[in-house]
Amino acid sequence: MKATDKIDARELRRKLGMNQQQFWSKLGVTQSGGSRYESGRNMPRPVQQLLRLVHVEQIDIQKVKREDFEVVEYLRSAKPALFKDLKKDAKAALKSKK
């Protein structure tokens, strides 16, 4: 799934076997807010991105810290070759676990 692909939140939630409270609370969205998004209300880009990270990429955002982002940004800008190599290695490691 590409980052530009639109996610059908209702379909994804149903595939995961979750109720609205379970699904949306992981993103910090109320059940009623999530219901509105599932009914067609425009979902803000940050919510779309959180939905992708949490429910598609399966990232536990409770474990992500600001310093993690700072390290990534540093590597991306100051050491792009190292960043590229680490990213490639991480993808390979994830594939070997599956």
Results as ranks from 00 to 15, higher is better:
residue 3 A to R: 08
residue 58 Q to P: 05
residue 88 K to C: 12
residue 85 D to R: 13
residue 36 R to S: 14
residue 79 K to P: 06
residue 26 K to G: 01
residue 7 I to G: 00
residue 59 I to F: 09
residue 74 Y to D: 13
residue 22 Q to S: 04
residue 66 R to I: 08
residue 11 E to G: 05
residue 45 R to Y: 05
residue 90 A to F: 14
residue 36 R to P: 07
residue 47 V to T: 06
residue 7 I to Q: 00
residue 36 R to E: 12
residue 37 Y to E: 00
residue 19 N to W: 02
residue 87 K to P: 04
residue 58 Q to T: 09
residue 30 T to L: 01
residue 70 E to L: 13
residue 15 K to A: 09
residue 12 L to P: 03
residue 75 L to H: 09
residue 86 L to A: 15
residue 14 R to C: 05
residue 88 K to H: 10
residue 50 L to I: 03
residue 54 V to F: 02
residue 53 L to W: 02
residue 28 G to F: 01
residue 33 G to D: 08
residue 18 M to G: 05
residue 7 I to T: 01
residue 3 A to Q: 06
residue 59 I to K: 06
residue 21 Q to Y: 12
residue 48 Q to E: 08
residue 41 R to N: 13
residue 22 Q to R: 08
residue 74 Y to N: 09
residue 13 R to C: 08
residue 50 L to Q: 02
residue 29 V to N: 00
residue 51 L to C: 08
residue 47 V to L: 04
residue 83 F to Y: 15
residue 85 D to G: 13
residue 59 I to H: 08
residue 25 S to R: 04
residue 67 E to L: 08
residue 43 M to N: 01
residue 70 E to R: 11
residue 85 D to F: 15
residue 3 A to V: 10
residue 27 L to E: 00
residue 65 K to D: 09
residue 8 D to F: 03
residue 67 E to D: 12
residue 6 K to M: 03
residue 13 R to Y: 06
residue 11 E to V: 11
residue 16 L to A: 12
residue 51 L to P: 00
residue 67 E to F: 07
residue 41 R to K: 13
residue 42 N to D: 14
residue 60 D to V: 00
residue 52 R to I: 02
residue 82 L to C: 10
residue 81 A to V: 14
residue 89 D to A: 15
residue 86 L to W: 13
residue 9 A to P: 01
residue 57 E to S: 09
residue 51 L to R: 00
residue 13 R to S: 04
residue 5 D to K: 07
residue 74 Y to C: 13
residue 30 T to Y: 04
residue 70 E to S: 05
residue 57 E to Q: 09
residue 64 V to G: 04
residue 43 M to A: 07
residue 38 E to G: 02
residue 45 R to Q: 03
residue 59 I to A: 10
residue 21 Q to C: 03
residue 49 Q to S: 02
residue 10 R to N: 12
residue 22 Q to W: 03
residue 70 E to D: 14
residue 54 V to H: 01
residue 50 L to S: 04
residue 52 R to G: 01
residue 44 P to R: 06
residue 81 A to R: 15
residue 31 Q to H: 04
residue 97 K to M: 13
residue 42 N to A: 15
residue 19 N to M: 02
residue 75 L to W: 04
residue 32 S to K: 04
residue 77 S to V: 10
residue 77 S to W: 08
residue 79 K to D: 11
residue 9 A to N: 02
residue 17 G to E: 07
residue 93 A to Q: 08
residue 46 P to Y: 06
residue 13 R to M: 08
residue 29 V to T: 00
residue 23 F to G: 00
residue 89 D to R: 15
residue 68 D to P: 03
residue 76 R to I: 14
residue 40 G to L: 12
residue 73 E to Q: 13
residue 49 Q to I: 07
residue 50 L to D: 01
residue 12 L to H: 02
residue 41 R to V: 15
residue 58 Q to G: 05
residue 35 S to D: 06
residue 51 L to S: 00
residue 21 Q to A: 05
residue 80 P to N: 01
residue 31 Q to W: 10
residue 62 Q to V: 07
residue 24 W to D: 01
residue 16 L to N: 06
residue 65 K to M: 07
residue 32 S to T: 11
residue 35 S to L: 12
residue 2 K to V: 05
residue 25 S to P: 02
residue 78 A to Q: 15
residue 21 Q to M: 10
residue 97 K to D: 10
residue 49 Q to D: 11
residue 88 K to A: 11
residue 24 W to A: 01
residue 77 S to P: 08
residue 21 Q to S: 06
residue 36 R to Y: 14
residue 65 K to A: 07
residue 78 A to E: 15
residue 3 A to G: 05
residue 98 K to W: 07
residue 23 F to K: 00
residue 5 D to F: 11
residue 89 D to C: 14
